[in-house]
Simulated assay, not measured.
Amino acid sequence: MSDERRLAVLRAIVEDYVETREPVGSKALVERHRLGVSSATIRNDMAALEDEGLITQPHTSAGRVPTDAGYRVFVDRLSTFKPMSLPEKQAIHGFLAGAVDLDDVVDRTVRLMASLTHQVAVMQYPSLTRSTVRHIELIPIAPQRLLVVVIAGTGRVEQRVLETESVLDDAVLGEIRARINAESAGLLLTDAATRLQDLPEQLPAEDRDLVRSIVRALDDALVEEREERVVLAGANNLARFGQDFPDSIGPVLDALEEHVVLLRLLGELSHDPNAVAVRIGSELQHEGLHGTSVVSSGYGSGQDVVAALGVLGPTRMDYPTTMATVRAVARYVSRALDG
């Protein structure tokens, strides 16, 4: 039996099952696909695929459906993604280009992915530990109260309010602001915080306590890393695929409410900004997600990944189109953040 023909049969079964949700038989394969062999040969190929655990027969005398392993082989053998049309690309660009800040970028992105894929869209906020410092601003909001604003290269903003022992002086704040930005701009936030530890000793004695307080505020900003956020959109899309889940969509919805589960998933899949990662069914460690697949990609600046985004849906998913959409959106988000 030809391995190439066997893979062609598997690909045809996956494509037909995704489109129709009906188990696929040998007669239908011959009629719909130009496989160049008889129904009897196709049946032999299907029997071999079943022996390998790539397809299964859900009912007696029924056609076959892909297993998780079959979907995995199908995805791994994809040579190209389904190309997006020019109008689709322009729609993505136009929709994200109108964002006014990071929160707006995230909100628009998940709504866009949910609309394009008809799945559940998930996006992680940029990680502080992977973000660079764009600017640190010191704003006096009262005679003895200071607002410390950290603006990351991704557009993420963190703010801390400090109570000071002495009345703030604008000229002194200007000098401290200049020194802090000279030491930290362009560095990873974690590296900037480390470098700034030595800054107080380089300044006049009367300014050191204030600078130490500012540096502690920057360290405190990193605590937010333990409370990373994810944003979801399109959970109602799961209702369209109710029959794809063995029991109900309840376990999936329960898992979606556990943001730590989603953060762990996206964290595992976000290391390569140029890759699209796919986890299928039983490959997902959370039992409530075993009937789903997750398609994700990292986003960030250049080769620096700061977080991930993706979609979650049933394993009976149009993988080529979904993978192309997730990759395209991730690239547009990276460009939007760079801008």
Rank of each mutant, 00 (worst) to 15 (best):
L10Y: 00
L112C: 06
L102W: 06
H271I: 08
S85M: 02
T292A: 14
T315G: 01
Y125P: 00
H290F: 02
S248A: 14
Y332W: 11
E163S: 09
N236V: 10
D338Q: 14
D198C: 03
L263N: 07
P200D: 14
S293Q: 09
V120T: 06
L112V: 03
A12S: 13
L7H: 11
Q243A: 15
E287T: 12
L187D: 09
P140E: 13
V172D: 10
D103K: 11
A62M: 07
V73C: 09
V172Q: 12
A217G: 13
D103P: 01
A40G: 06
V110R: 04
D107N: 11
A221K: 01
S79C: 08
L253V: 10
E224K: 07
L188Q: 05
G313N: 04
L265N: 02
D45R: 11
R11A: 07
L265S: 05
M123T: 07
V110T: 07
V100K: 15
A28R: 15
V311T: 13
G36P: 01
D191A: 15
T132W: 04
G186I: 06
V14N: 01
G186A: 07
V278N: 05
T154P: 02
V157Y: 07
A8D: 09
L203N: 04
I176P: 00
G155F: 06
A99P: 00
H259A: 06
E4L: 08
A48K: 11
Y319E: 12
I139N: 12
F95Y: 14
D209K: 09
L218V: 06
R335C: 05
V24T: 07
E201C: 04
A217N: 05
I214C: 05
N236W: 15
T117P: 01
A324L: 04
R6A: 02
S296K: 13
A47D: 12
Y71P: 00
R240W: 13
R72E: 09
E268I: 03
H33V: 06
S61H: 15
G242Q: 13
T322R: 07
L146C: 03
A328G: 04
V329N: 09
I280F: 02
N44T: 15
Q303R: 14
L96F: 12
L187C: 04
V148F: 02
G310L: 02
R111Y: 10
L263Q: 14
V311D: 10
D198W: 12
F95I: 04
R160D: 11
Y125E: 13
V306K: 06
E22G: 07
D68F: 07
V100P: 00
P126N: 08
D45N: 15
V149E: 11
V37G: 08
G63V: 06
Y125W: 14
M84W: 11
V223P: 02
H286K: 13
L162D: 09
